[in-house]
């Protein structure tokens, strides 16, 4: 016992000593780095630079992927220098990422989610030459501009198709947040416009990754009699397509944000495409030219036909359904249909 104590004593000291050495080294070089920091700056002010703060892995399906693809599109079409960072889901870290990009002379930084709003506002005042765009936000304050894709509109169209062709609908969301709940409100309004008694059930997984849970949720909705099951749950969503694929023909879904036909080839009524990239390229082009200005936040909807559209698979929806969908698009653009009208 006594010997062990003694040993402890020395180990503690020994470890501490090494830690002190490491830290001293870190601090010294930090100081050195701090002094030489200015010299590193290269003059690349003529390069158009665009940064992205992604709330999750950029290769996740759905939401996080559309922003990454948008970034790649900006790189390709505008020759921009791009960069992204996956900030862990901690708002405390966002401000730093914004500041880093802005201080490196990025002209445009996209925070992909409402949660980036506070951080952008805190940073934006110090960097008037950078535009800060915030996805699914309604903000417009100086150089901080919300960019929203109104998913309730395409979901409204899907609702029309479901109510005209199916027996019941199931909606499977990742987490209960406004972008998802709004999409589901749109769907419900679409359904109600056709048949107010059409059954709709909703399940939230509480996760963006749990594909197994999504699959089970879909199977249980099928057992309850639903035949249109639509996910809005990023990577977890493909569990839904798998459930449909295994259940067989006669059960339908839509690809969300991208073409997911390959995952359940016999069960896709169509795909909702969100080419956020195209929308952002349109904005980025103006930012690069230096003539971007706006009086309000920006909202993409079905009016922006190159950004948001629903494509039905050949021969699966009748001409009558397609016609009602077209009519609804016109109504939404004209303002006679409010896809976000409160339910009940």
């Amino acid at each position: 016992m006594h010997k062990r104590r003694l040993h402890n004593f020395f180990t503690v000291k020994n470890n501490l000593w090494h830690l002190v050495l490491i830290s001293l080294g870190l601090f010294l070089s930090a100081l050195a780095g701090g002094c030489s920091g200015g010299a590193e700056k290269r003059d690349d002010s003529d390069v158009f630079k665009v940064g992205l703060l992604s709330p999750g892995p950029v290769n996740g399906q759905g939401w996080t992927q559309i922003a990454y693809e948008a970034l790649l599109k900006i790189e390709k079409e505008l020759g921009a220098q791009i960069s992204y960072v996956e900030v862990e889901q901690s708002p405390a870290l966002f401000e730093r990422a914004f500041r880093d990009y802005a201080s490196q002379g990025y002209q445009m930084v996209l925070g992909h989610g409402f949660e980036f709003q506070d951080a952008a506002l805190a940073v934006a005042k110090d960097y008037p030459d950078t535009w800060f765009f915030i996805s699914s936000s309604k903000i417009h304050e100086g150089n901080v501009v919300g960019v929203d894709s109104d998913s309730s509109q395409p979901f409204y169209l899907m609702g029309i198709a479901a109510a005209k062709m199916g027996r019941g609908a199931g909606l499977i969301g990742g987490v209960e947040i406004p972008p998802i709940t709004n999409a589901f409100i749109g769907f419900t309004n679409g359904v109600r416009s056709v048949n107010p008694d059409f059954p709709i059930s909703t399940t939230y997984l509480g996760s963006w990754t749990d594909a197994a849970a999504a699959k089970e949720a879909a199977l249980s909705m099928i057992a309850e009699g639903a035949d249109f099951i639509i996910p809005d749950a990023d990577a977890a969503g493909s569990g839904v397509y798998q459930a449909l694929n295994e259940t067989g023909p006669g059960y339908w879904s839509f690809g969300i944000y991208n073409d997911y036909t390959s995952q359940a080839p016999n069960n896709m009524m169509g795909n909702y495409f969100n080419d956020y990239g195209q929308g952002l390229v349109n904005i980025a082009r103006q930012v690069r030219a230096g003539n971007f200005e706006t009086q309000s936040n920006l909202v993409f909807g079905v009016k922006d036909r190159d950004v948001i559209w629903v494509e039905f698979e050949e021969g699966r929806a009748s001409a009558e359904v397609l016609e009602s969908v077209e009519k609804a698009i016109e109504g939404i653009i004209a303002g006679s249909i409010n896809t976000l009208a409160p339910i009940r």
């Binding site: 892995p57 996740g60 399906q61 990754t209 594909a211 990577a235 977890a236 493909s238 798998q242």
Partner: peptide
Amino acid sequence: YLTVAHTNQFNEGITS
């Protein structure tokens, strides 16, 4: 089981 039986996909943190 999660990636080759229950579903046929991997995503980061799929074990949840």
